[in-house]
Design a protein around this nucleic acid. Sequence first.
DNA 1: CTGTTAGCGCGTTCAA
DNA 2: TTGAACGCGCTAACAG
Lengths: 338, 338
Amino acid sequence: MEQKKSKVTIDDVAKEAGVAKSTVSRIINNAPGVKPITRQKVTRVIEQLGFTPNLMARSLKTNLRRQIALAIDDIRNPYYPELAWAAEQVAKQNDFRLVLINHYGNPSEELAVIRDANDMHVDGIVLLSISHPKTLNPLIKKATVPVSLIGNYGEDMPADTVGLSRSEGYLAMDHLIRIGRRRIAYAGGPVTLHRGTRYAAYEKSLAASFMKLDRSLVFTGERLSLETGMEAARYFCGLKDRPDAIYAANDLVAIGVIQGLMELGLRVPEDVAVVGIDDIPWCMLTNPKVSSVSNLVAEMGRIAVELLLKRIDQSDEPFRKVKLEPRLIVRESTVKSV
Amino acid sequence: MEQKKSKVTIDDVAKEAGVAKSTVSRIINNAPGVKPITRQKVTRVIEQLGFTPNLMARSLKTNLRRQIALAIDDIRNPYYPELAWAAEQVAKQNDFRLVLINHYGNPSEELAVIRDANDMHVDGIVLLSISHPKTLNPLIKKATVPVSLIGNYGEDMPADTVGLSRSEGYLAMDHLIRIGRRRIAYAGGPVTLHRGTRYAAYEKSLAASFMKLDRSLVFTGERLSLETGMEAARYFCGLKDRPDAIYAANDLVAIGVIQGLMELGLRVPEDVAVVGIDDIPWCMLTNPKVSSVSNLVAEMGRIAVELLLKRIDQSDEPFRKVKLEPRLIVRESTVKSV
DNA sequence: CTGTTAGCGCGTTCAA
DNA sequence: TTGAACGCGCTAACAG
């Protein structure tokens, strides 16, 4: 009765059914060439004994673990639950489990994820790298399991990749310019983040519209957080020549900016239009609701896992680089609601 | 060069170093009784060959996988990232990984998690059950790995448990009553959720204050969502005798209620005070910020994992039932900001 | 202090 | 169609 921890093995089944364990093995793996009679008999015994194969032993043989890892910087970032959810969905559909790893954007931890790949019971890794260390490439090459990357990396990465066809920033900037804003400011974190593409989009968009870059309109805080946004708002309001629009490096910053502006008595979007990036769920909860650019995070998670599973299954195809088109979502922080 | 997938084994190391593999085993497990000289030599070879032990084989022997599962209903619920994060932290500190499972509050899926425990590479399960099926108890008894429960269950659950010392609802209701509100409404989902404790707190608190229960002040939607909150707001505003306070079953509902009320031209908290439960991060982003009751979700996650790891390590101690005290957090949706 | 040996539970030849 | 035997890579006795 109290055999809580005792596991019934394939041998127990074989003995009980009066067959060899290889026969049982064939049956649990749906292998052909087993007389229906035998199959039925053994199946009954399996039910009866409540046998389930020991995956550890099986993995040792097959070298397949039916698990993949999802390595992101911090699940608490509102950006990720959608991603993790989508990834887990696809994994589950294929009878894989998902191991969650937070690497905190710490370059060494990001690398450790790959290096420790074989120390984990995983058949592959979905990695979203923030810092994108230069050593990533060689490390992936040496990895014992395939890696699927989310984000935009160099073309030479030896991994399947799903990213955006162009920086979300261009859509955000285009939008601000198109609604007639002329003094557009940038609020973000260190420019190295996201490999600078979000900031680069700022400079390039300005140039493309023949607007000159005003360094005083660039605010960079420590992290992409609400606090940074609020500091940015205070900073911009202190300027003699206030911006009439702010392009924030992500929604958290955008929301902080909006709160900061409103606390200082400014109206959004009338006085200052604000646009963010990521389209996190919070965008729809604030007042005004935040215009943002969606990078289709759930879609990326889904595709990244699909690519990974495909490669685990068959690893000799050329690497695929999937590009998604970011999508502008106009809400109330840039255009007065009708 | 292109040996990406080939793994060097303990035998390779042994051969290369000219020792027996048991010696290598001792070294990688930091077992005592190895001459420093030998240890150094072998260590060098390990480095050189880039050997890392095959965990599958090790697990097969030790029956320890160094992985635990975290089963919650849906990671997209804003309530959970904190929990998942805390759980992963503790796991990582103990050199365990965390497998994420969404069971969608689906009773059968909740049960399947436990039933499939041995089909997963996990040493234990942290389970947060929403529906709390009656068959949970016997299933946990039969499980092959220990289970650690988050939430409030019966005292007879054969598992370590971390829950709250009393329903968060009492704190919320106390608060509303104490700030002088007399017509307090309830907005939530099906009363069966959370085993009804959040609604029960509503009735009991009213009774304890000698306020009579008015059925017209109880609104129950389909799910605990923003939409439900907005519907509730519209419903309550349509009443001839409007409530002056609303106790929402969770923060999502509370935020929806607030949005709904404000769209209808009511002031929060002046006309109607609103309090939620869970203290999700969003509470601090809205305007007004939402008063809520924190159930210390990160703390619960941390403790649940600690209890689980302790039991994995030593399974014969009596089950521990940890109770945490929920905490009221007063923000702007109940008391006018100073 | 180190080597030899025997499994852990399963999949997979190869014979029968 | 089935069975016997071997080995995946590792740990854990037991010798030496």
